[in-house]
Design a binder for these strands. Structure first.
Ligand SMILES: [Mn+2]
Ligand SMILES: [Mn+2]
Ligand SMILES: [Mn+2]
Ligand SMILES: [Mn+2]
Lengths: 229, 229
DNA sequence: TCGAATTGTTGGAGACTTCAAACAATATCA
DNA sequence: TGATATTGTTTGAAGTCTCCAACAATTCGA
């Protein structure tokens, strides 16, 4: 069995033919040309070549159909396309059209392992309570859009996002120290930098930079603010 | 200013030349050929073409160097390559070599927006305490490898991963109900299905399927078990 | 320094993808 | 049904990417 990798173009022709085959009109030369933004004469040449490779049933002026082998390739390509598009829209939050174009470009090189991991990551985010919302808020914030009113410990405030201090849930000397540093309800706060090992973190408040341990930061409740710093 | 998109191959030549330029040996025809797995004569042809496009400084038998314009393209391609590789290794947990090959294939179609979102997602996971570890455990589990000994509420147990019940942190009638259903420390448990809106969730214990609310599930501490269900 | 080994280029060719123009088949409608 | 409009193919040509074989330049040892 030959495992000659088909070219990206050949894969696109098969994918398009599969999609059009499922419409009442069937796959017609002109429609394929339109879908792939090439001239009909180019499609004619492609059809002949794909037929010679045993991927299409086709005779001039006749209907275009996939052979079992061609269908298998087409469904494989289509599966990669759909999996990528899903990752781009549902996990990365891209617009349908951006996702569509990029997916169709990358589908020819992506490996099954990468697709598996992307799907796994998407499920992971969606299955963790609160995570999907926070991730969505991070995206919105990065885009400069209004972030939903997410609240979290300061240690969870993404870098580049400002927060408003809502409460400082500690007592004793630590509270006193934080208050002295100006960490009081209502003040704007941001995470400047996270040390490579994650602890301590640098925080900016009232124009000053403070350093605190992650455990301390987690005691400070903040509300995320729209817009980047 | 022409914004003719360069072909994927042309981008690969420029990227390779940039990389080799930074070595003491410089970019030599043979080395480029070796790096791209083509014959030296193919490289000669490519060099001439790239020179004609104003991307290379080069004369036959002479040293190969990038023009400012060529360097700009090369650094852009290289940036996309590195960003993708980083996402594949650090976020998706792929092996270096898989990441390398796939990145070099996809780098020619990926858009800046997609790269931004991938980086944002990676930072998001790493900046959330405990998330990176859990995600890493999910990946290991999916691969059938030993998962680190992650513990969480049952509501956070990924679908497809088994857990061992460690404790049922409730009292009263709910506790009684759970014990009657067989949810006791030491028993194997798994999340079967999460309803579209996340609540309730279907759980499998001792061969039976139970349904419970997410709030209830969160009271059941589980330790993740290696291997898929 | 000079001959041999290494390295790089040229020339010729084929596969692939595309187009425009000319031509052929099919579909539509009067 | 026959003329016309639409659709699809063929032909000829170009650009890209690749190879092999032959040739040319450069480098390296003796
Ligand atoms: Mn495609
Ligand atoms: Mn596609
Ligand atoms: Mn590449
Ligand atoms: Mn690359």
């Amino acid at each position: 069995m030959k495992i000659e990798r088909l070219s990206a173009k050949a894969e696109d022709y098969l994918e398009t033919i599969l999609r059009l085959s499922e419409t009442p009109r069937g796959a017609r030369t002109g429609d394929i040309a339109e879908a792939l933004d090439v001239q009909p004469s180019t499609v004619s040449a492609a059809l002949k070549s794909l037929k010679d490779q045993g991927l299409l049933d086709y005779s001039p002026y006749g209907a275009v159909g996939l052979t079992p082998k061609g269908r298998q390739v087409a469904e494989d390509v289509s599966g990669r396309h759909v999996a990528l598009r899903r990752f781009f829209t549902e996990t990365l939050g891209l617009a349908q059209e951006d996702a569509e174009v990029t997916a169709c470009g990358m589908e020819h090189d992506v490996t099954p392992l990468v697709l598996d991991r992307m799907a796994l990551l998407g499920d992971f985010l969606r299955n963790h309570p609160g995570m999907a919302e926070k991730w969505s808020a991070v995206r919105a914030t990065a885009k400069g859009e209004r972030a939903p009113g997410v609240e979290s410990g300061l240690h969870e405030l993404p870098q580049g996002v400002r927060g408003v201090v809502m409460a400082v849930d500690v007592d004793g000397s630590l509270r006193k120290r934080l208050v002295e540093m100006g960490v009081t309800p209502g003040v704007l706060i941001a995470v400047e930098r996270v040390a490579p090992l994650g602890d301590p973190i640098a925080v900016e408040v009232r124009g000053y930079r403070l350093s605190m341990r992650k455990a301390e930061a987690s005691k400070i409740r903040v509300k995320w603010r729209p817009g980047l710093i």
